[in-house]
Design a protein around this nucleic acid. Structure first.
Length: 489
RNA sequence: GCCGGGGUAGCUCAGUUGGUAAGAGCGCAACAUUCAUAACGUUGAGGUCGUGGGUCCGACUCCCACCCUCGGCACCA
């Protein structure tokens, strides 16, 4: 492998810190982690970024309601996201916060100046319905009867002068880049949605708010205004890697290979962000990968319904790889998925306990109890069919991961697991052969199974890193712990 | 309202350009078996492929209408 020179820069979106992490962010983090680990396995120079988006009204409001200092509150929330990433065994190389004044703030300022220099920043009156209670503008959709749904007070029509970004100028170019494939959007349906939005044309967007109405970094050279969310959050992808000083790292890593995002923020990543980059004379990310949402028992996850699934609890209860497995195998990568404990436990028992867990225990049991086998007696397969099957599935696996079909990649691995189980049954490995040649053949078969398990571990590493490690250890020491104890019903 | 994606076995989904393929996995049942986590394996039951029309020698696969569902339609992120 000589992929050392090839770089791979992957990001998650930066979740907002008004609430602790839920399972939706866990999905995104784990998906991005598979990509990062897979490409590392290919020998590429991988950089994997995640972080938190902290500025804005909501964090401010939630902090106030809790009687907390906002920065202090944001610190705590951001810490929770840092924790969940760690708990999920996500291999991020860095973690950026929008409140970071060393890396982020100067980078955002620099980007702003670039946009300004391109003539894409201008002042315009922004009109909106403002709720003094919320201290925020309300969108048309939020407004009920001309009133704020939270405070039930009549909204004021407030006009303020803000800085706008000339988004409209770039729609044609972005459309072109998408159509040519230079900017790839996965899946196809989301690409089409973006294209249809572009076709309708985009209006310019406000990139700042009056200082006292928005928590954020000040607009360079106009401290009466603060930078609005797009201008603050999206640039995290370049601020973290050294955009401000245009470091070697920045030159090497940008443009990003993949931005992993949720469908709710698609427009900002497929239109706003590319427009900003074009304006600044920077390259566009290569791929935007859009995942769906996770419902709980068919219902939207929400605080008011009280059905928010806490990823910390899940990991505590079932173990990190069980959670990763569910997210990657049961949830279709680009569709909305569903979470229930029943489904989770069923997946766990059938695939994890009965599949990989059982196979490893089985093979090691045969090797140690039934035979005095020492691995390896050969690094080549004796059984052509098994070898062929593994090769086929490896191919499918590679294709699947590289097209973001994580569930299909896992299906391929489980095909190998199933083939191994069948092999053991067909050969009746537990019986004692009567001849010495029969005995020799038996050892060869066990060797095949060890080779297969070893390969399964390798394939599993991006998905279930802890399990992969345990498998490796089991093969090396010929002792296995119970990988996934069955959950009693 | 406009635009787009879907509606295939109990569940989650595959089904290439229309013609002996109506499929997989899970769940369920039976059988077999004991090396393993009551596991693994084999076999089986289960679907008029949303509804009603149409084109065709022939449609899950094409056309029309309708029903249901999910999403997008521009500053909540």
């Amino acid at each position: 492998m000589t992929n050392k020179s090839k770089k791979f820069y992957v990001t998650t979106s930066i979740p907002y810190t008004n609430a602790p992490p839920h399972i939706g962010f866990a999905l995104e983090a784990v998906q991005a982690d598979v990509l990062a680990r897979y490409h590392r396995g290919l020998g590429e120079d991988v950089f994997f970024l995640t972080g938190t988006d902290e500025h804005g009204i909501k964090t401010l409001r939630v902090a106030r309601e809790a009687g907390r200092d906002v920065k202090d509150f944001a610190d705590e929330m951001s810490g929770k996201f840092k924790d969940i990433v760690k708990v999920l065994n996500v291999s991020n190389d860095d973690f950026i916060r929008t409140t970071d004044e060393v890396r982020h703030k100067p980078a955002v300022e620099k980007l702003w100046k670039k946009l300004e220099k391109s003539g894409d920043i201008y002042k315009k009156k922004y009109k909106g319905f403002y709720c003094p209670g919320c201290e925020a503008f309300k969108t048309d959709r939020e407004i009920i009867d001309g009133k704020c749904p939270i405070h039930l007070k009549k909204l004021e029509l407030v006009e303020e002068e803000n800085y706008f970004f000339r988004l409209s100028k770039y729609t044609k170019e972005i459309e072109k880049r998408i159509n040519s494939g230079e900017l790839e959007i996965v899946p196809e349906g989301k690409k089409n949605e973006t294209l249809s939005m572009l076709k309708q044309g985009m209006e310019d967007v406000s990139f700042s708010r009056m200082k006292d109405k928005y928590w954020g970094w000040p607009v360079p050279e106009d401290p009466s205004q603060n930078l609005y969310v797009w201008m603050d959050a999206l640039p995290n992808y370049i601020s973290a890697i050294g955009y401000e000083e245009e470091t070697d790292q920045f030159k090497k890593l940008w443009p990003a290979n993949v931005h992993c995002i949720g469908k709710d923020i698609m427009k900002f990543h497929t239109i706003f962000w590319p427009a900003m980059l074009l304006s600044a004379g920077l390259e566009l990310p290569k791929t935007i990968f859009v995942h769906g949402f996770i419902n709980v028992a068919g219902q939207k996850m929400s605080k008011s319904l009280g059905n928010v699934v806490d990823p910390f609890e899940l990991v505590k209860k079932y173990g990190v790889d069980a959670v990763r497995y569910y997210l990657l195998r049961e949830i279709l990568p680009t569709e909305d998925g569903d979470f229930t404990y029943e489904k989770f436990e069923q997946r766990y028992n059938s695939d994890l306990a009965g599949g990989i867990g059982n196979l490893v225990a089985r093979v090691l049991g045969i090797a140690t109890k039934i035979s005095n086998f020492q691995f390896p007696i050969s690094n080549k397969f004796s059984n052509f069919n098994l070898q062929k099957k593994i090769k086929e599935e490896q191919k499918k696996y590679k294709l699947a991961v590289e097209s973001f079909k994580f569930n299909e990649a896992l299906i391929a691995v489980w095909e190998i697991i199933s083939a191994c189980d069948k092999y053991i049954n067909e050969e009746k490995l537990w019986e004692t052969p009567s001849t010495s040649s029969g005995q020799a053949k038996k050892l060869e078969i066990i060797n095949d199974l060890f080779l297969a398990i070893e390969e399964i571990g390798v394939l599993l590493e991006p998905f279930l890193p802890e399990t992969a490690e345990k498998i490796k250890k089991a093969v090396d020491t010929q002792k296995a712990e119970n990988l996934f104890p069955r959950i009693a019903k």
